[in-house]
Design a protein around this nucleic acid. Structure first.
Length: 394
DNA sequence: CGGGTCCTAACA
DNA sequence: TGTTAGGACCCG
């Protein structure tokens, strides 16, 4: 009895510390506190309360542990479900500053979260060939300011099976929309996670049905949710709140985000979690009424995609191939796109010349366009059509 | 920005 | 010998 009481005290202290640590992200409900103590030490569950006599007796062979495991990382906090092998919620806090930096997703790798018991963890092999992609809940793109933070978003505790088109398409655009909210709001809080919603069967009964993938039978959610809270510089101003439920399926550009907006309390009933406990709900404003909730257009996405590809091109052949595809797809070439193409063309040509210094020892890569042709591989000569210039938009 | 598959070199 | 790490290449 005495030992149990002391354990309870210690666990209680740990619990309090944990709550303070993540309070910058979210206000925890009482029900969530119980899972915190199992973090990092699932084999020796700590009892946070003095159990009654009956309770002590019936679990004297060991209290069940696992269930849902709380994790706090550098960028995000989450609760992981050991049964479905995916998180039930992932929370993060965005500011304009937290999105600046050079962290690169190509340096990160998907891997198991070291603090989730292996027997309850999903694996990359579960996703390979499944037809489902590994979708971040806290996006890598929210961690540009820290490579270490970005690496942690690739822990599979932050990942769930997501439709490929949805992941890189509509959901991606929603994530970009959330990042852009930091230009309007001083603070943006986001919580994302899975839903398993019923469908109405032919006989009128409602059933929940979902696929599981891989040896570990990772659950494929039918829908994804996102709760967004924005606060402006004026502390007195009411927070803007948006709650969204998006099908885990392909969604083209014909859909508007407001089609998937739902009242927060309705979302909470379906998810089984209360969000934003600190929020004065009678004074909140509708995020979509305030911002319009317009996601990037197809043209804007195409430009972003090809901007990224131009940036990654490793030689002039690749660069020109990408540029040609931009033309063929009739993607409007704004000045940013053209300027990137020009600078990349110059840089790649220059580096090529340096490799051929034996051919042009007198050249110090100054005036690329005026160099003798022997200094170039034939395909390396940087040229930009006059016609192309004329067609530049913006 | 968000993902994928395939092949090869290096390694235990 | 089989398993990893990284790069090439692909998609929206």
């Amino acid at each position: 009895m005495r030992a149990t009481f002391l354990t309870g005290l210690v666990a209680g202290s740990l619990s309090t510390v944990g709550i303070i640590n993540i309070s910058k992200f979210w206000i925890l409900d009482e029900s969530i506190k119980h899972t915190i103590n199992s973090q990092n030490d699932p084999g020796q569950i700590q009892q946070e309360e003095v159990l009654g006599k009956v309770a002590q007796e019936v679990i004297s062979e060991g209290r069940p542990w696992g269930g849902r495991i709380m994790r706090t990382l550098q960028n995000h906090a989450l609760e992981y479900d050991c049964a479905t092998k995916i998180p039930i919620w992932v929370a993060e806090h965005l500011t304009a500053d937290s999105l600046k930096g050079d962290a690169n997703r190509s340096k990160s790798k998907f891997k198991m979260d070291p603090n989730i018991p292996e027997e309850f963890s999903s694996r990359n092999s579960d996703y390979y060939g499944s037809g489902w992609s590994r979708g971040h809940m806290s996006p890598a793109g929210d961690c540009k300011n820290s490579q270490a933070s970005m690496d942690e978003t690739f822990y599979l505790s932050n990942i769930l099976p997501q439709d490929h088109n949805n992941n890189g398409g509509f959901w991606n655009r929603l994530e970009i929309f959330c990042r852009d909210l930091t230009e309007r709001y001083r603070d943006v809080w986001i919580t994302s996670g899975p839903l398993f919603l019923p469908r109405v069967r032919d006989d009128g009964r409602k059933v929940v049905e979902y696929e599981v993938i891989g040896d570990n039978e990772v659950a494929v959610p039918t829908h994804l949710y996102k709760v967004v809270v924005g606060r402006s510089n004026k502390d007195a101003a009411p927070a803007a709140v948006g709650a969204f439920i998006v099908p885990n399926a392909p969604l083209d550009y014909s859909h508007h985000l407001t089609q998937f907006q739902v009242p927060l309390d309705q979302l909470e009933r379906k998810v089984g979690l209360k969000f934003c406990g600190k929020l004065n709900r009678k004074e909140t404003r509708d995020l979509c009424e305030e911002t319009g909730c317009n996601l990037l257009t197809k043209t804007q996405m195409d430009q972003m995609i090809f901007f990224s590809r131009l940036k990654k091109a490793k030689n002039i052949d690749k660069l020109n191939k990408i540029w040609k595809e931009i033309q063929e797809r009739d993607i409007p070439t704004d000045t940013k796109l053209l300027q990137l193409y020009q600078t990349r063309l110059t840089d790649l040509s220059t580096s090529g010349i340096e490799e051929r210094a034996d051919l042009c020892p007198e050249v110090k890569h100054k005036e690329i366009a005026n160099l003798p042709s022997t200094c170039y591989k034939k395909e390396a000569r940087p040229t930009i059509d006059a016609e192309l210039r004329a067609n530049v938009h913006g």
